[in-house]
C-alpha cells in the first residue's frame, strides 16, 4: 500500500482528503437541532435585519463547526506525531498528562463558584484548564530533559503518573464539593464543543496555529525517525530537536483544544492509524491528512451529538467512541484480510 510518494501521488491524496473535509465542513452547519429556514438566513445576511434563524446559523452553528474541525484536526495531528516520536502505537495527545492537568484546573474552577476570573475571552474554567495543562506539560518536560535530549521513556511514564496523580486530586475535590456541582464536572469530562460566537475561537488560534505549524514541519524527520533513532541520526536528522519540537507542538495544540472542548478522547489515537491504513505511512501525508480526517470526523460526531437527541444534546465524547470504535475496527479487519 505504501507506494513511493511522488509529487503527483501526494497531490492526489491530499486533494482527496481535503475534498472530504471540505464537503463535511460545508454540509455540517446546515443541520442542527432546529431546522432553519434558509431564506431567512440569507435575507438577514444581506439586509442586516436580525432574525433568530440567522443568529443561530452565524453565531452558534458556524463557530461550533469550526471549533469541532480545529479541535479534531489538532488532536489527530498531535497524536500522529507523538506515535512516531514515542515509538508507541498507543500514544495519543492526552498521554502527556495534559488531560489530567486540564481536568484538575476545570474541576477547581467549577467547584469554587465565587471564583470569577475572566482574562480576555476566556472564562475561569478555560483559564484554569489552560493553566493546568501548561503546568503539567512544563513539569513533564522538566522531568524528562537530559543532556542528550528528552528521554521518551520518562515522558511516557511521567505522563501516565501525572494523569494518575491528577485523577486523585480530582477525586479529592469531588469528595469535598457539594453534590450539585458534580454534574457540571462530569459533563466537562465528557467533552463538548458548545461555543457562542467567535471570541473564544479566536483566542484558541495563538495556541493552535504555532503548535500545528511546528508539527507539520516534522513530516520528513518523522519518516526517518520511524526507522529508529540511530537510522534517523545517520540520515542527518537532529533527533533531540525533532523530539522537542513535537513535544512543544503537541503541548500547545492539545492545551488549546482541551481548554475549550474538554478532554475529547479517541480522535488523537484512532485517526492517525486510520490514515496510515488508508493511504500509507509517509508522514508528509499522514500529518495533513490526519488534520483533514480528524476535523471531519469530530465535526460529524458533533453533528450527531447535537441532532440525534434534539432538542437536547449529548456529550460529543460518547459519540466519538461509539461511532469511531466500530469504524476503526472495520478498517483493521479489512486490511487484515488483504494481507
Amino acid at each position: 500500500m505504501t507506494a513511493i510518494l511522488t509529487p503527483k501521488r501526494f497531490a492526489l491524496l491530499m486533494t482527496a482528503y481535503a475534498l472530504l473535509a471540505l464537503v463535511i465542513f460545508a454540509v455540517a452547519p446546515f443541520f442542527g437541532s432546529e431546522s432553519l429556514a434558509f431564506n431567512n438566513v440569507v435575507d438577514a445576511l444581506f439586509s442586516h435585519r436580525a432574525h433568530v434563524d440567522a443568529d443561530i446559523f452565524f453565531y452558534h452553528r458556524i463557530p461550533r463547526v469550526l471549533l469541532a474541525f480545529l479541535v479534531g484536526g489538532s488532536l489527530a495531528v498531535a497524536g500522529g506525531a507523538l506515535q512516531v516520536v514515542l515509538r508507541n502505537p498507543l500514544a495519543e495527545p492526552f498521554i502527556l498528562g495534559i488531560a489530567g492537568g486540564g481536568a484538575v484546573g476545570a474541576v477547581i474552577a467549577i467547584s469554587v463558584p465565587g471564583l470569577f476570573i475572566r482574562a480576555g475571552p476566556f472564562s475561569s474554567v478555560q483559564l484554569l484548564t489552560l493553566l493546568g495543562c501548561i503546568i503539567c506539560i512544563g513539569g513533564i518536560y522538566w522531568l524528562a530533559r537530559s543532556p542528550l535530549g528528552i528521554s521518551m521513556t520518562t515522558i511516557l511514564l511521567a505522563g501516565v503518573t501525572i494523569n494518575i496523580l491528577c485523577g486523585a486530586a480530582i477525586l479529592l475535590v469531588r469528595y469535598l464539593v457539594s453534590p450539585h456541582l458534580l454534574v457540571a464536572m462530569d459533563r466537562w469530562m465528557m467533552g463538548g464543543l458548545d461555543v457562542v460566537g467567535y471570541r473564544e475561537l479566536s483566542a484558541l488560534l495563538p495556541l493552535l496555529l504555532p503548535g500545528l505549524a511546528l508539527l507539520f514541519m516534522q513530516g520528513h524527520a518523522l519518516n526517518q525517525l520511524a526507522f529508529g533513532e540511530e537510522m534517523a541520526v545517520g540520515h542527518g536528522v537532529n533527533v533531540a530537536s525533532v523530539q522537542k519540537q513535537v513535544f512543544l507542538g503537541t503541548g500547545l495544540a492539545t492545551a488549546g483544544a482541551v481548554s475549550l472542548a474538554g478532554p475529547i478522547g479517541f480522535v488523537g489515537l484512532i485517526i492517525p492509524h486510520a490514515v496510515r491504513r488508508l493511504s500509507g505511512v509517509d508522514h508528509r501525508v499522514v500529518l495533513p491528512a490526519s488534520f483533514c480526517l480528524g476535523g471531519a470526523f469530530l465535526t460529524v460526531c458533533d453533528l450527531v451529538a447535537r441532532t440525534v437527541v434534539a432538542p437536547t444534546e449529548m456529550p460529543v465524547g460518547i459519540i466519538t467512541a461509539l461511532v469511531g470504535g466500530p469504524v476503526f475496527l472495520r478498517i483493521l479487519l479489512k486490511r487484515g484480510k488483504v494481507r
Binding site: 442542527g32 437541532s33 432546529e34 433568530v52 443568529d55 443561530i56 452558534h60 452553528r61 454534574v183 459533563r187 458548545d194 457562542v196 447535537r306 437527541v309 434534539a310 432538542p311 437536547t312 444534546e313 449529548m314 456529550p315
Partner: peptide
C-alpha cells in the same frame, strides 16, 4: 419550554433555546 423532553434533567440545545424564545 422543554416540557416535551422525556428526560428529567437534560442538557438543552442552545439552538432550541433560541428558537423556543
Amino acid at each position: 419550554i422543554f416540557a416535551d423532553v422525556t428526560q428529567p434533567y437534560p442538557e438543552a440545545s442552545k439552538e432550541s433555546l433560541l428558537k423556543r424564545a
